[in-house]
């Protein structure tokens, strides 16, 4: 990883000095041991602060949204970043000519305190970038150690009352900080329904009903566009099992409308919920 780190620093420096890009998005060391934090810089000198190690837990993929207005940005992209960028591109949030994607193969990231592989990385099926302009180092072909829908099937097998208790308990913990929305590469609406105070979709109370309303609406809004990066679940300060909701929708899409995985390339058919077939499953007769 240290040679990748060296390569990152020198490529970032070159790109900024040549004026090819306006800014670079990567990671730098954080304040604590084994912690990193995103680094966004336009200064060639600062590229020496870039790091790459097993604790680069942040998915940088959403940052281009806020930066490309001023011109081209370079971003270091593993599987999750590359898919987030495809998400932004297919949702027409950014333009292809405004991102320069430097691919890095990902071996999986670790928790800062326990040293264990992160849950999202154990579940991840695409550690290597699916789109890039250049590649640093070799693809890692990291296997997913966790079955994609195992969690969903486990919950589905519970009796209804237990599922209700499980999710009611989960929603009762939500503090509606909206971190899960802020970090999500699918959540790029200029104005989110939670902020439309006058329309009043969502009240200001913090109770289970409102939290559930927010939680389920988020899942439906993200829906078929979720890239399964697991960032929402990682950032949630209250440890809500958000992936067990996101993946439920994907699981059903898989079962109802055929094998589905989004944001793997730029020329994909329309996502499952924005299209239809005349002979789709019929249950509502």
């Amino acid at each position: 990883m240290s040679d990748i780190q060296e390569a990152m620093r020198s490529r970032a420096k070159e790109l900024l000095e040549s004026g090819e890009v306006n800014a670079v998005i990567g990671w730098e060391a954080g304040r604590f041991e084994n912690q990193t934090t995103p680094l966004i810089t336009s200064q060639a000198a600062k590229t020496q602060r870039l790091v790459f190690n097993e604790y680069c837990v942040n998915n940088l993929g959403k940052y281009p949204r806020d930066l490309t207005a001023k011109g081209k940005v370079a971003i270091f992209a593993r599987g999750c970043e590359s898919r987030a960028i495809i998400r932004l591109l297919s949702d027409e949030v950014i333009k292809r000519e405004n991102v320069y994607i430097i691919g890095i193969g990902c071996p999986g990231m670790r928790d800062r305190t326990t040293g264990e592989l992160l849950k999202k990385c154990a579940e991840c099926r695409h550690g290597d970038p699916v789109i890039y302009d250049e590649m640093l180092g070799e693809p890692q072909a990291k296997p997913a150690t966790q079955e994609r829908f195992a969690e969903i099937q486990k919950i589905e097998a519970l009796p209804r009352a237990e599922r209700e208790a499980y999710f009611t308990n989960a929603f009762s913990k939500c503090i509606r900080c909206y971190a899960c929305r802020n970090v999500c590469p699918c959540c790029t609406c200029r104005q989110c329904f939670v902020d439309q105070r006058r329309e009043g979709w969502l009240g200001k109370q913090n109770n289970i009903a409102e939290n559930r309303f927010y939680g389920l609406t988020r899942v439906m809004h993200v829906g078929d566009r979720c890239i399964e990066c697991g960032e929402c679940e990682r950032v949630c300060p209250m440890d809500l099992p958000l992936m067990s909701l996101n993946r439920k929708v994907i699981y059903d899409i898989n079962n109802l409308f055929g094998e589905y995985e989004t944001a793997l390339s730029l020329d994909e058919p329309p996502s499952a919920l924005t299209t239809y077939k005349v002979d789709d499953v019929e249950e509502f007769m």
Partner: peptide, 13 residues
């Protein structure tokens, strides 16, 4: 399509 998915999500939770 939307209601097929939504109904399942509601029942799931």
């Amino acid at each position: 399509r939307r209601m097929l998915v939504f109904k399942r999500l509601l029942e799931y939770q």
